[in-house]
């Protein structure tokens, strides 16, 4: 019986190479049909998410302020600094003086103690002062503070020149922006 049932056989695979690539052959015979039963492996993504969240939480700082550092400025370092507070920012670069990213003065190569005229800076500071006075009248207390950022190699005379104008215009609380480092890194 068994012999009779095998008399007529459907034509099958006849090629008999030395190395029969069975898996590839079966794939070809499926005519590109894929199994619909597949699952996306989320393990790696969840691992990555968890690592990223832990890293960001460790670096999270509740006291920091968004702070714009000019492209040409390398902020000096300090150990005993205190947290930055929001205040108008004066940036002193090699060529110019900026008040809140508006150029308000130039920095010639040879600045002397008598070069105190920066009319645009004075005008900008007076506008700020007027705004602060208006806020004060509205009951919002404003500190007469200002932040200064400058490149670490800037000659002090350029800083003093700006400081003199700031004090003359009533901004007596001057904060020097520094990059905080740990004592062991000093």
């Amino acid at each position: 019986m068994g012999r009779k049932s095998r008399l007529i056989l459907p034509p099958g695979y006849h090629v008999k190479p030395k190395y029969d690539l069975t898996y590839l052959r079966h794939r070809r015979e499926q005519h590109g049909k894929r199994s619909m039963d597949f699952g996306l492996s989320l393990t790696a993504m969840i691992d990555m998410f968890s690592t990223l969240v832990i890293f960001l939480l460790l670096n999270f700082s509740a006291t920091g302020e968004a702070y714009f550092v000019s492209k040409n400025v390398v902020i000096p370092t300090a150990i005993n600094a205190r947290p930055l507070e929001t205040a108008p920012l004066v940036s002193i670069t090699k060529d110019s003086v900026m008040l809140d990213s508006h150029v308000v003065g130039s920095n010639p190569v040879n600045v002397t103690e008598s070069d105190l005229e920066m009319p645009q800076l004075v005008e900008g500071l007076r506008k700020l002062k007027a705004l602060q006075d208006n806020l004060k009248e509205a009951g919002i207390e404003q500190k007469a503070q200002i932040n200064i950022q400058a490149d670490e190699n800037t000659p002090v005379v350029k800083i003093k020149r700006v400081m003199t104008i700031l004090i003359q215009e009533g901004f007596t609380g001057i904060n020097f922006a520094v990059r905080e480092i740990r004592p062991e890194d000093a």
Binding site: V69, I75, N80, A81, R82, I174, E180
Partner: peptide
Amino acid sequence: NQIAVLSTDS
């Protein structure tokens, strides 16, 4: 940026 300040009050 870990920016902090050194303050002087004149």
